[in-house]
Amino acid sequence: MKDYKSILITGGGSGIGRAVAQRFSRGGWFVGLADINEAGMAETGALLPEGTWSAHVLDVRDPAQWDSALKDFHAACGGRIDALANNAGVPLGGDLADLTIEEIDRTLAINLNGVIYGARAAYPYLKAAAPGSCLVNTCSAAGLYGQAGMTVYCASKFGVRAITESLDVEWAADGIRVTDVMPSFIDTPLLAQSSHHGDNTQIRDRVAAAGLEFTPVEEVAETFWRAVHGDKLHNTVGKTAKKIETAARWLPSYIRSKSRDLAERGLKPMG
């Protein structure tokens, strides 16, 4: 039996996934990178010690590709998968009426269906490695309270939050821990794109205009490490996420008023 642990990370070719891969590699874990971006995975792998990682082409929207990637990673990592980081995701902003059906379907397929397919496919591997195995989902501050200009994205992240809470209960008897990480805005390559097809402004610029801070991706990666090794169900990251978490729980009327004010002033972060 191998004496190290292993984690498969979707979206491992860039951004949060790359930072998480580096953090777990420093912690002595064998890291599996899963992504549709082969060049990105190679770039991430070049940052990791030789022989401590593997790469697996995966479109999280395809259940058959999930089965193949997990089977290949199981063989590559030594026969035990200790954790899955359901991290792959895409942003989508803009007023609902301005979004195309294709944009809506793609976002939900990746951000929501992909998480469900991943959890379902990984279950037997995590059960075999239990107790102590873990599913960690990338949620968001957008899963704490809905915002204008983020309807579909919020819906996907509220769904991820619900998946986390449901499986936390469902898989407890199997000895599998389930948790999620809820960052606010992270300055990754995803923010360099516009929020939707009809918008020419980078998401990064909209976030800055709304006066919201960017959380360092390294802080998110450290939270992933704590989430897998700790016992919290939801793990917020960054000042904005923590403020929304507190306000949504104790001051819902305040956050509703604040959100409406931002929307009326045209400062929707992804609108």
Rank of each mutant, 00 (worst) to 15 (best):
I101P: 04
I101A: 14
E103M: 15
E103K: 15
I104A: 07
D105Y: 08
D105T: 15
D105M: 12
R106L: 14
R106Y: 10
R106T: 13
R106E: 12
L108A: 06
A109N: 15
I110G: 00
I110N: 00
I110F: 01
N111Q: 13
N111V: 13
N111C: 13
L112T: 07
L112Q: 10
L112K: 04
N113S: 14
N113H: 13
N113Y: 13
N113A: 12
N113M: 12
G114N: 06
G114A: 12
G114T: 11
G114Y: 01
V115N: 02
I116A: 15
Y117T: 00
Y117A: 03
G118S: 09
G118M: 05
G118N: 07
G118P: 02
A119I: 03
A119E: 03
A119K: 02
A119D: 05
A119T: 05
R120D: 11
A121W: 00
A122Q: 03
P124K: 14
P124D: 13
P124I: 13
P124R: 14
Y125A: 00
Y125S: 02
Y125V: 01
L126V: 07
K127C: 09
K127G: 03
K127Y: 06
A128T: 07
A128N: 09
A129R: 05
A129H: 04
A129T: 05
A129W: 04
A130V: 08
A130E: 06
P131A: 12
G132S: 05
S133V: 02
C134Y: 00
L135P: 01
L135T: 05
N137F: 03
T138Q: 11
T138G: 06
T138I: 11
T138V: 11
C139G: 14
S140V: 10
A141C: 10
A142T: 04
A142G: 08
L144A: 04
L144F: 10
L144N: 01
G146W: 01
G146C: 07
G146L: 07
G146I: 04
Q147F: 07
A148F: 12
A148N: 06
A148P: 05
A148V: 07
A148I: 03
M150D: 04
M150V: 04
M150C: 12
T151Q: 09
T151W: 02
T151A: 15
V152K: 01
V152G: 01
V152E: 00
C154I: 05
C154N: 14
K157V: 08
K157T: 11
K157A: 11
F158I: 11
G159S: 13
V160S: 01
V160I: 11
V160M: 08
R161A: 15
R161D: 14
R161P: 05
R161L: 15
A162I: 08
A162V: 07
A162E: 10
I163N: 10
I163T: 13
T164L: 04
T164E: 06
E165D: 13
E165V: 09
S166D: 12
S166Q: 13
S166I: 12
L167W: 09
L167K: 02
D168P: 01
V169S: 15
V169P: 07
E170F: 08
E170P: 04
W171Q: 07
A173P: 03
D174K: 06
D174T: 03
D174I: 02
G175Q: 03
G175E: 04
G175N: 05
I176G: 00
I176H: 01
I176E: 01
I176P: 00
I176R: 00
R177G: 10
R177M: 10
R177E: 06
V178T: 02
V178Y: 02
V178H: 02
T179I: 05
